[in-house]
Write a protein that binds this DNA or RNA. Sequence first.
RNA 1: GCUGUGAUGGUGUAGCGGUUAGCACGGUAGGUUGUGGUCCUGCCAGCCCGGGUUCAAUUCCCGGUCACGGCCCCA
Length: 439
Amino acid sequence: MVQKPRGTRDFTPNLMRRRLAFENLLENKALAHGFKRVQTPIFESLDLFTAKSGAGVVKQLYAFQDKSERNLTLRPELTAPVMRMISEEMRSEPKPLRLSYFGQCFRYEESKKGRYREFFQYGVELIGATGPLAEAEVISLAIDMLDSCGLTNWEVRIGHVGILNDVLTGLGLSSEGQPESPIVSSMRLLDKGDWDGLKELFSTHGVDSSAIDNLRSLSELDGGAETLSSAREILSHMNIGTESIDELSQLLKVLHHLAPKAPSLKVNLCVARGLDYYTGMVFEVDVPELGGESQVLGGGSYKLLHLFGMEELDPSCGFGLGFDRVLLALESQAEKAGRSEVVPGETASPSTLVLPFRIESTNVLSLVKELRGAGHNVELDLRGKNIGKSLDWASKNGFTSVVIIGPQDLENSQCSVKNLISGDQNTVSLDVESISRII
RNA sequence: GCUGUGAUGGUGUAGCGGUUAGCACGGUAGGUUGUGGUCCUGCCAGCCCGGGUUCAAUUCCCGGUCACGGCCCCA
């Protein structure tokens, strides 16, 4: 039997109901914050992603040639396509732009729980506005989304690549080099907490090893905005400017007013995100109980539009939310809490079965049409069983009410409307208004 | 890229070198020609794929596929 390709999933009606509810929730939050939905192609030119991330990414892409030998790839993420779209379609739009997107992305890598070859991302980008206020707007949306879907036990970490960059530059490290500059290498090591590796790197570049202690102090800062004053002290000791810290400090102050309270929000100056196009604030959200794949959201301020000749708009700020991972976390938390509703609003809306009993179905077709036209979710019974079996079937399929029409009903222009939840049954006149009132 | 565990109807499982492969849920048909979620009965439906060992493999061995873990990575 042919089965679905590795790392892909099918979504049955029950799963889709949950996913649609979640998508709607995210969409509503995005709109509440002014972010408007866009959509880009599932496949793009290969160059779009090699320009952004280097030729090395190709091995992780679903890249292919079409029949005219164009080099294409399924998209591995959505930021670059959105940047491309802005440069092609939205150059003359008044800025700033608040854009949101949702869709599947594809990466060729090992699949396991929480990591799929086809996965879904919801994300936003704020283009044409920079600074702590813009960044706080973006983070506050992220927090609002996670807060409103009922997620618990999540941790926000906010850092600032500029701070580390200033420190490492101040130590005399270069931002040039292949395949990776000393500064980028240092950040990666700091992000991993690999102090031995860092020590080795510093000695090869002739950096005084006493700097390690200062960096370690910076990395050990743990807490909210108050930790920034300690950071400021350390930087002063090292004779490093504190502009980035001032920015971060301002951001946290603004965020405090703008965002719902997150379960845990900490400053962590070693958040490096592993990406060299992030230039300022960076942030991540983790749900520790997810284990190995616990990061559910990540973003920050980055410079990418210069790749499209729009350097005046850099930097932008945005984040990507791991749709599948947040759902996994919600499902696991709902199960632990014994809660049946995983995503708020996922419960199916009321629906009605119209059951012609021992009469020709043609007698009720216009009723079905009119009920649907009045906005009800209506199914016409197609099985033609006896009433007992039909009610059984209706309740197993989640109907909230059944309209039963038999020969006598037809004669008297009436019908029985049974509420499957309460069990109540009423005889009402056989017209849309009367039935609508009661279902 | 490295590595561990697993795979039996649609779902969850039992079991075994020779079995009519058991059970529960599910689906379906009836018991019931105007009232469901109970009950009873019949039926449907399975040993992931390929190779090897063996008189005999669903069971043991090897490879593949898929899933789930632990590292690496994660634009």
